[in-house]
Write a protein that binds this DNA or RNA. Structure first.
Lengths: 154, 154
DNA sequence: GTGCAAATCACCCGAAAGTATGACCGGTTT
DNA sequence: AAACCGGTCATACTTTCGGGTGATTTGCAC
């Protein structure tokens, strides 16, 4: 409720001042002019009612304005990487194993790698096991680190 | 005075337009009230007018919604690494969490990180969990990959 | 044809990683 | 004094990883 009041303070104030002005008008009218009052009252009620309707319509049906705040994300220039085939052959790493390594480096889980390569989870495990042996590591993070050092992955 | 005008511009405008409309109404009343059945037209016009006013008011005053968009920015290839503190502060990553991330990137297991930082395994898990939340990832390999992209680690 | 390496998949099991929650302490900030 | 934050640690639980072993298929080389 508090938040609501704060948020729509301006609108509420406007509404209140509107009402105040109508009251003032009425008073002035009574004071100085002897007219047909029922009519004006009626019109005023309609005006307020339809103003409310308009506000409700707009709030209900119109998409809120959006302010786009851009947050910069730094990205290294992906360009000059070429694979070190010498090391690749020397260690006897197969194509499939290299593919697994690449996906590992992108942060994929074994299951995700399996899905991407259209093979079973067990197959990925086998490949990664062999890969770890050949790279002489025991964890995927180490494999990625070593892979980068040896220019097997960008 | 200028500031006042700027601040309450909307309210002032609303008041003015309201006053203008009331004058218009009065004029219309004098002009057309003599005809029979002019009432329907009159009421309709008022309804439409004030509905429009309400819509305009709501559109003018509604709080804008903010949308944060990530924009990728290429960075020139710098040989030496220096930490991107802007991103670090933006994401609210603490010193300890960064240390954990660095050791992760070197391929350390949680237990090894715990040993090196002289804290318990559970503490390392807590740090890494918070780190993952802040980096919006769910695995250490993803954390390392994103950390490198954001220049949080070399 | 036989041999062999690569690729595929399966099962089991223990270790590691990750989630969720709660607690405590020592500084600030209000 | 009360609230908050960063760092520390813990328990309990689920998921993922990695090691070990074995099996089948395919294509290439001898």
């Amino acid at each position: 409720m508090k938040a609501f009041l704060l948020r729509y303070r301006t609108i509420l104030l406007t509404g209140l001042s509107l009402a105040g002005m109508l009251v003032l008008l009425r008073w002035l009218e009574l004071r100085f002019l002897i007219f047909d009052h029922a009519m004006d009252f009626y019109i005023g009620a309609i005006a307020i009612l339809f103003t409310g309707l308009g506000i409700w319509l707009a709030l209900k049906l119109v998409n809120p304005k959006t302010v786009i705040v851009e947050r910069e994300v730094l990205v290294s220039p992906s360009s000059d990487f070429q694979l070190n085939e010498a090391v690749l052959n020397q260690l006897g790493i197969s194509k499939r194993e290299l593919e697994v390594l690449e996906l590992m480096a992108q942060g994929c889980s074994n299951q995700e790698i399996a899905n991407r390569l259209f093979v079973s989870l067990n197959t990925v495990k086998t490949h990664s096991s062999r890969l770890f042996e050949k790279l002489e590591v025991s964890r995927r993070t180490q494999a990625v680190e070593k892979g980068k050092r040896l220019f097997l992955i960008p």
